[in-house]
Design a protein around this nucleic acid. Sequence first.
DNA 1: TAGATTGTTAATCGATTAACAATC
DNA 2: TAGATTGTTAATCGATTAACAATC
Lengths: 206, 206
Amino acid sequence: MPSGEIPPIVIQRLPLYLRALSGLESEGEITSQELGRRVGISSAQIRKDLSYFGGFGKQGAGYEVGRLREKLRQILKVDREWEVVVVGVGALGHAIARYAGFNNRGFRVVAAFDKDPRVIGERVGEVVVQDVAHMVNVIKRLKAKVAIVAVPTSQAQEVADALVRAGVRAILNYAPTNLNVPDGVRVRHIDPVAGLQSMTYYLDSE
Amino acid sequence: MPSGEIPPIVIQRLPLYLRALSGLESEGEITSQELGRRVGISSAQIRKDLSYFGGFGKQGAGYEVGRLREKLRQILKVDREWEVVVVGVGALGHAIARYAGFNNRGFRVVAAFDKDPRVIGERVGEVVVQDVAHMVNVIKRLKAKVAIVAVPTSQAQEVADALVRAGVRAILNYAPTNLNVPDGVRVRHIDPVAGLQSMTYYLDSE
DNA sequence: TAGATTGTTAATCGATTAACAATC
DNA sequence: TAGATTGTTAATCGATTAACAATC
């Protein structure tokens, strides 16, 4: 299985393929055309993307659903469970920590941190909120590599710095701001308002 | 001001520029290089993106922060307040309906819908949750063009169909599934797990 | 004027699509 | 075998970057 030379944009599409396959029966086959229709991507694109990892289709038939799903899980390394920590347990952090959608997709929330004494000690989902002052040590002990940031914008960068110091290598950032991190650490941004703003551009002005 | 022929990827970057400018004093100037540093994009890219809409920089000096911010708000049509409806008021929908981050960025939640009788009637943020059975009529009356979908995957497509019938033209979808909509309707997806999965690819196995 | 940065063109780079031989 | 779809190459398309004349 290759790595490194795969275009990042291909890697970002694989979760969409996996997501579409997860809603299907494991038995039977699916063609690149049908999968493309389901994810809104051309069949040529899908065949090309998958071919980076070797051929797991059958000419004339398509791809075995169960087999392709397992392959994608292996490639994305979600054939295991990654321990995730959540930083910031306001309304949004609450929803994240309790979000059932992580299960079965490779992730489990194992710790949550906040600095507000009114939240510390509270049980949220499977975990009890801890003082952010202990965050770096706790994460080091857990050896968690994945974190979700849901603190106010003003604190996002310092939280990110602390996470990096603690050994975190993948950050999902809900704060509407860019984060500077060293090489080897990855960041993805979730900004619903940016998504909305890129759509209003196309709307008629009333 | 042109439109139509602007690459969609340019439109998707404008909110990031606007976001970065919003954290700055209105007075004074910013160079494409400094703005690029803040959003993590090359200065050439920023100058090229902005030039699609005419030159609002000053050679030798940079861009006036306040002026550029206003221009971007006009281009993205967020120099007004769009009325947004939220469909699905579970844990996630709750957080969305109460999210303060919409204010000042062009959006205001004006209605929320759910089918669960235990949630209908409950006050969330500024609104009272209504029965989804009334959704299409209420949206038509409000003339809302923007909606946020936070229902379970199994109901996402039928909710989207109803939103389109009600006249909604921009959908922000939190359900981890693709949505099929007719031309003229736009969809953006928020899938935190897909974001996480595209990062674990790069992590060492254990 | 001298210095600096924009706006824009041309060159480069990368991603998508089309097409078809290979093959199940 | 006949029919269908993959895997892959080449062509096309689009996006980013480099470079510099224009100009504040």
